[in-house]
């Protein structure tokens, strides 16, 4: 089962130095494990701001990971554009896709799953999809390792 503890282990394994996050109800279940780890999360107030902090971290030689829900990703578009395309920094994101499972089951009219794919593509960010309910901790670690290892920006669309 992919949970906070396995995510912390995956971040360690991937060489992530800092976690910048704004949790949603899914990512919030990682809070205890993250707070007890060396990845005491950096807590900004809004998602564009999270990307700004990540820009500074990357300029200073760190390897941050930014975690946010897709609703916040929608808000953060200009900061993402600036980081990935103006500054050409290797911005790494995990973006939670709200209601993805419900939408797959035909039980949600939430527009998040529809627009998450389109907006990540619009910003020309290489991305993969990951469903933590259908994956092992080892597979989660592999996905995060692949994200971190890429030379440029990248996104994992994380099914919620």
């Amino acid at each position: 089962m992919v949970n906070g503890a396995s995510v912390v282990a995956a971040l360690e394994d991937a060489g992530i130095t800092h976690l910048v996050w704004i949790p949603d109800s899914h990512f919030g279940t990682w809070e205890a494990a993250l707070s007890a780890s060396r990845f005491k999360p950096i807590r900004p107030c809004r998602e564009g701001e999270a990307v700004g902090v990540a820009i500074g971290l990357m300029l200073g030689g760190a390897k941050p990971l930014v975690v946010m829900q897709c609703t916040g990703f929608f808000e953060a578009g200009d900061a993402v554009r600036n980081a990935a395309h103006d500054l050409k920094l290797p911005l790494k994101l995990i973006v939670g896709v709200r209601s993805w499972h419900a939408a797959q089951a035909g039980k949600s009219r939430d527009t998040c799953p529809h627009f998450a794919d389109k907006l990540v593509a619009a910003w020309e960010l290489p991305h993969t999809r990951f469903d933590p309910t259908a994956a092992t901790p080892e597979q989660a670690a592999g996905a995060i390792r692949d994200l971190a290892a890429g030379p440029g920006p990248g996104v994992i669309l994380w099914a919620e």
């Binding site: 130095t17 800092h18 950096i42 900004p44 564009g48 701001e49 999270a50 990307v51 700004g52 902090v53 990540a54 820009i55 500074g56 971290l57 990357m58 300029l59 200073g60 030689g61 760190a62 941050p64 200009d78 900061a79 554009r81 600036n82 980081a83 103006d86 500054l87």
Partner: peptide, 26 residues
């Protein structure tokens, strides 16, 4: 001197904070 332009308007304090956190003491 890091002239933050092209920028994302409003992000300059966040960028500065990130630099401080990446390089403690800077």
């Amino acid at each position: 001197d890091f002239h933050y332009l092209p920028s994302s308007m409003g992000q300059m304090v966040s960028v500065g904070l990130g630099l401080c956190l990446a390089k403690p003491g800077l």
